[in-house]
């Protein structure tokens, strides 16, 4: 649906302030298209700055790299700053916080559990042999294995879209495991055994049922399902 400057779109937004609301509710706001290519975040800002300063959401970079503004827009998780309003092909956008995450206020949810799971996979280089005086060498080919893994912005869109993540509160989830793969497949890393141990269980790689929701949710077009499958292969390769 092509939107022109001056057109109006309704944002139906999930609202909840624990200090005054007994239960969440939806509130409608009219957003005016002010330029072509307007993003959902621009619409939220328009509401906050011109209509209702109480509307609460996270944002920072406004260019899809900080991971602050993961949310659910018309049923799909994404970051609002990189989502064109007109791509939703609808006069109404229903905007909710990330499903499955505890809610703090309006579109802001609690990432503590999500980050704790990220820490579990030891998301840092583990070295056993002391590094050389210069940089470690890595071939272009080996470096390219990290493409599609290192770009994660920890926005939570994937984990929050995963049915296994909702069903099993201990499931590490696609984001944490993609970050595990980030180091397991780094030729410079020497800690893969401990890292694979951390994900080799029913709350780790074996919980994934390749439902693939996480792939379509990732605003960086990363592929957590493939990362998980590669971790599974790596575990089998090492064990047997």
């Amino acid at each position: 649906m092509a939107l022109n400057v001056g057109d109006k779109v309704v944002f139906k937004i999930f609202r909840y302030d624990p200090e005054k609301d007994k239960a969440p509710y939806y509130k409608d706001y009219e957003v005016t298209i002010t330029r072509t290519g307007m993003m959902v975040l621009d619409g939220l800002n328009q509401i906050k700055w011109e209509q209702d300063p109480t509307l609460t959401y996270r944002r920072s970079c406004r260019e899809g790299v900080c991971g602050s503004d993961g949310m659910n827009i018309n049923g799909v998780n994404t970051v609002s700053c990189m989502s064109h309003i007109e791509d939703y092909d609808s006069n109404v956008l229903v905007i909710k916080p990330l499903p499955g995450f505890p809610i703090i206020k309006d579109l802001v949810c609690d990432f503590e559990d999500f980050f704790n799971k990220y820490y579990v996979v030891k998301p840092y280089l583990i070295e056993k042999t002391p590094p050389p005086g210069r940089e470690r060498l890595q071939s272009i080919e080996d470096r390219n294995k990290l493409n599609g893994l290192y770009e994660c912005i920890l926005c939570g869109c994937c984990s929050s879209s995963c049915p296994s993540y909702w069903a099993d509160p201990d499931y590490l989830g696609p984001s944490a495991m993609l970050n595990a793969a980030r180091y397991v497949f780094d030729t410079r890393d020497e800690g893969s055994d401990e890292r694979l141990d951390a994900v080799n269980n029913v709350h780790g790689v074996w919980r994934c049922h390749t439902i693939l929701n996480c792939i379509s949710a990732c605003p960086k077009e990363l592929n957590p399902t493939k990362a998980i499958a590669n971790l599974q292969k790596e575990i089998l390769k090492r064990k047997y």
Binding site: R58, S60, C61, C66, S68
Partner: peptide, 9 residues
């Protein structure tokens, strides 16, 4: 903001 959301990013 959470560290990885800082503008260095």
């Amino acid at each position: 903001v959470y560290p990885t959301r800082s503008h260095t990013v």
